[in-house]
Amino acid sequence: MNNAVHNESKDEIDYALDFTTSSAISRVNVKFLAVYIPIIWLSGILIGVFWYEWNKNKPPISEDWEPWVGTLIFLPYAIISMFFIFIISCMFLSKLFLILINLIHKPREGVFRAEIGDADFEFWCLRTELKKLVMWLMRNFPIPWLDSLAFKWFGVKMDSSSHLPDAWCDIEFVKLGRRVLVGQGAVVMSSMVIGNYLIIKEVILDDYTVIGGMACVSPGTITGRDVLLGAISATVLNQLLEAGWIYFGIPAIKLKPNQLAYVSQITKSSVDDEQKVIEEEVINIEEEKKEKLKDKW
């Protein structure tokens, strides 16, 4: 009970954002159906055309069983191609819509009101909803590189050496370096809703960053090289994580220097080099031995 009194007297005018919330706004809005239905319809028609062409030259069903076997063998191929055609056409169409929307209103960083009536907020909702369909389709397909393709396609700056598929990640204002690993269930937010306000700020994760499972990365977080953010920790708004440190806790503070940082940078070529060095050394030792032996003799 004392805590409450203590805190109340303390924060008379405290507007500091020293806590983390979420950005999950998938408000139900009938407006979004106006975007979805054309995308689904047009991509569906493409599939219809494919299916029609696939079946056009097939002989009609008869007692002759040989053409049936051929059809059955290649049916999975047809289904997978149909799925890919659907995804790719959805990708192109939603990108087209996205470009059009971005022409009307350019996405920008800043603090906006999270109310219907604010242009930035409404366009942000529209953008996230638009991207959702394709992301959903790709994420339900068991090929991880499709995910990173979709992230790249919608404007996340990342390399395919980074791993995002097991996390919630915003699809704009996120920059990833090389070989970044984001853990299971982690949340990488470039937008956050606090009270009546929507905050959009770019998140930058530098090379070899590892984000632990269930961690929350707030908007504006910038991590240096080799940063490790522990599991179930959270960063606050605009937090800078210094290069080469392990951060942990809510909010994340320095725990200890990341002494295993060099491990993440070892590549196959460097391992090969090391082996070569060892071999050379062995040879040298033997030569030294020989020399010593010679001296003895």
């Binding site: 405290d14 954002l17 606050v236 708004l237």
Partner: peptide, 19 residues
Amino acid sequence: KYKKNRFFEDGLEKVLGHV
């Protein structure tokens, strides 16, 4: 309980600060 939620007030766009 941590602090009072003052983020429903109007005109905080420029006041909101980070830690």
